[in-house]
């Protein structure tokens, strides 16, 4: 299994577009080209079919399957935490084999046994304390903005520890995935937010937080009576970063919280613009409801009016 650091690297490599950072030093130039082409292909094909297209792509190039599966964002799925009874979101950051770690109980489901259970990453001490507080805080945020849905936060240490340094130590930094899923209760619309944050210490008590956010949204509105079918789906990805002081884990959550909140507000506006304005403008450009000749007349009339105003 890939380590968390490798996952973070592949994730940011996807987001940087085709400028890929390879985790395997022996990856040949050939597979680097195929990887870039695979990412480009998934950027073009219908985002509604991303999971199916990704599976097919892995069949075509099995050598790239691990990299592709860990770097391409797909709609979030959830599992049930048997101990707390709550649902939690799953992603590559809380996965070990076929099991996923619940942020509530810190247990893997389905349960791991023997050596697998011992080797599976599990945050403890400071890192787990931060994770628990993050889950509580972002759950309140979820309630305020989403009024429903599920949220999960996972944390890990992205730094390379060859010595005996404790991986649960957060003094030099940490990484987090903050996830939200909301299924509309009035329609079949779905919203998934995937935030990956890297917090790095740059001076005593000052951290730089790097955020990469992908929001996946899909909507359908089909109407048998009118014979119309419509699907509007896709994802947008943006990055942001912030430098801020942090003396306690509460400061960390405040810094991460405001960063995520600002990014979600910005992306929500962007989604509204792209999904509902830009696409509709293109439709109106392809076929005009008014006669083209009328539109020209209107335009020339408008320019006459403007000339008239300017001439005054």
């Amino acid at each position: 299994m890939l380590t968390s650091q490798q996952l973070l690297l592949t994730s940011s490599s996807y987001l940087n577009g085709l400028k890929t950072i390879f985790i395997n030093t022996n990856t040949s130039a050939m597979s680097e080209d195929s990887y870039a082409a695979s990412i480009d292909l998934l950027r073009r094909l219908d985002p509604k079919n991303v999971s199916r297209n990704l599976t097919n792509l892995c069949r075509l190039v099995p050598d790239l399957a691990d990299e592709l599966l860990s770097s391409v964002d797909q709609p979030l799925q959830y599992r049930k935490c048997e101990e707390s009874g709550d649902n939690f979101l799953i992603c590559d950051y809380n996965r070990d084999g076929d099991s996923y770690r619940s942020p509530k109980s810190n247990n893997y489901y389905p349960p791991l046994s023997g050596e697998d259970a011992e080797l599976a990453p599990k945050p403890l001490n400071d890192l787990r304390e931060l994770e628990v507080f993050a889950n509580d805080s972002f759950d309140i945020y979820r309630d305020l903005y989403y009024e429903g849905g599920i949220s999960s936060v996972y944390m890990w240490n992205p730094n390379d520890y060859e010595d005996e340094t404790d991986i649960n130590d957060i003094t030099n930094g940490f990484a987090a995935a903050v996830l939200f899923k909301k299924e509309s209760d009035v329609s079949s619309s779905i919203w998934d937010s995937i935030h990956v944050i890297n917090a790095e210490k740059i001076s005593p008590e000052t951290f730089i937080y790097t955020l990469t956010t992908t929001i996946i949204m899909s909507m359908e509105d089909s109407d048998a009576e009118q014979g119309i079918s419509l699907s509007l789906s896709g994802s947008l990805t943006r990055q942001s970063e912030k430098k801020a002081a942090a003396k306690s884990y509460i400061d960390h959550i405040t810094n991460m919280g405001t960063l995520v909140e600002d990014m979600e507000s910005k992306l929500r506006n962007m989604i509204q613009e792209v999904y509902f304005s830009k696409t509709r403008d293109v439709v109106g450009d392809l076929r005009t409801i008014n006669k083209v000749s009328n539109l020209y007349n209107e335009k020339s009339m408008q320019s006459e009016v403007i000339k008239g105003i300017q001439g005054r």
Binding site: Y146, K182, S187, R280, V283
Partner: peptide, 24 residues
Amino acid sequence: ELALNKKFLKLNEVDFKSLRRPLP
């Protein structure tokens, strides 16, 4: 085209709003 305009309006004003609020 007119039906599509109506659908866009409804998706924006009903479906989209039911996913995430602009503010609490």
